[in-house]
Simulated assay, not measured.
Amino acid sequence: MTDDAGVRRGYVTQTHTGAVSWDEALRQASAVGFDFAELYLDGATERTRLDPGSVGSAAAEEGLDLLVHLPFVDLEIGSPRDPVREGSLSEQRACIEAAAEMGAEKAVLHAGTSARPPEWQLDEIAPILLDSIRILDRFAADRGVEICVENLPGVPFTVHHLDRVFEETEASATFDTGHARVDGMDADEMADFLDAHGDRVSHVHVNDAREDADEHVPTGSGTTDFETALAPLREDWTGTVSVEVYTFDFDYLELSAEKLDAVL
């Protein structure tokens, strides 16, 4: 459960695959002793396939808080083409409304785009992405949901671009350890980033890997030095931390929770 430093722990569900239902994912979170579940609003749990009220009620019955991960695979909030971008923003707004209805407190947002070189340069795309972040952040705040922009591996916005998000928007951030590692950060540099930006990083994805890749192996089975990387979270930081493990095996999820607790 929540520790003295105010860190709450949970996990990113794999409900979008259809291999596990949203209600089973909530039961698993409760059985492990997590404080929350981070529900994917895509695929099998895309917003039109859910009854937000039922999700919220079930979470409350399990004693869980809720976060959501907004869809991203086919949405283009950074598109330089107005109709494409506006359609994507409209869908994200609808997802945020569903999140608010189920009582989710945070929504993880991928501020990325497939518009990239050689056709589009970052200096052309960044202002569009930042404007979309501001639009969604204001929309979500009006509904009691906190937008948390996630650093993405190799595409805008990487961990090396989050300074612009902090400077030019009021949005919070999700810091993904695996994505940061892909983009060249070692454990000490991750700790430095969290220490410097702990006031804006509201959520963390603990994404373990055996190499500089976006692997999402069970926490503790990779080579990421979380003891070092997450040290600033043990120093009066208040926020949420999700283990993000690509597994449907409950035992690996439970072990990942134990490994995370040992670090926190």
Rank of each mutant, 00 (worst) to 15 (best):
A98P: 04
L260M: 13
G112D: 08
K106D: 08
H16Y: 15
Y11N: 09
G220R: 08
L109R: 04
F157M: 13
V145R: 00
A173K: 05
L75W: 01
T48D: 13
A100W: 00
E211T: 15
Y40V: 11
E167M: 06
H160K: 10
A140G: 03
D131G: 08
T224L: 14
G6S: 09
V32S: 03
R210W: 04
T223F: 03
H69F: 02
P153W: 06
L67W: 03
L152F: 02
H179R: 04
D186Q: 08
D188K: 14
V155F: 07
R116P: 00
T238L: 02
A5E: 12
Y40T: 14
E146W: 00
R138C: 05
T2Q: 12
V32D: 04
R134M: 07
D225W: 02
G198H: 03
H160L: 13
E227S: 14
L66T: 02
G63D: 02
P118H: 07
R234F: 03
E62P: 00
A196Q: 14
I128M: 04
D23T: 15
S30Y: 01
A60C: 04
Y252N: 12
R234A: 10
Q14S: 13
E211S: 15
A126Y: 02
S132Y: 03
T247Y: 02
G220H: 09
W22V: 14
A104F: 03
R8V: 12
V217S: 09
L233H: 08
E46H: 14
A29G: 15
R138A: 14
L129P: 02
G63Y: 05
E244W: 06
V73W: 05
K259I: 01
Y246E: 06
I133E: 03
Q92K: 11
E101R: 10
D188W: 07
L26A: 11
G18C: 10
E24D: 14
V55N: 07
W120Y: 14
F175G: 09
R116M: 13
G6E: 11
D186C: 11
E168M: 07
R234V: 10
T15N: 10
E124H: 00
E62C: 15
F36M: 11
V159N: 03
V84I: 14
A140T: 00
I147N: 08
A104C: 05
D195P: 00
E61K: 14
C148F: 01
F36H: 15
S256W: 09
H203A: 07
E244Q: 07
E101H: 01
R81N: 12
Y252G: 01
G154M: 05
E97D: 15
Y11E: 05
E254G: 01
G154L: 07
R116E: 09
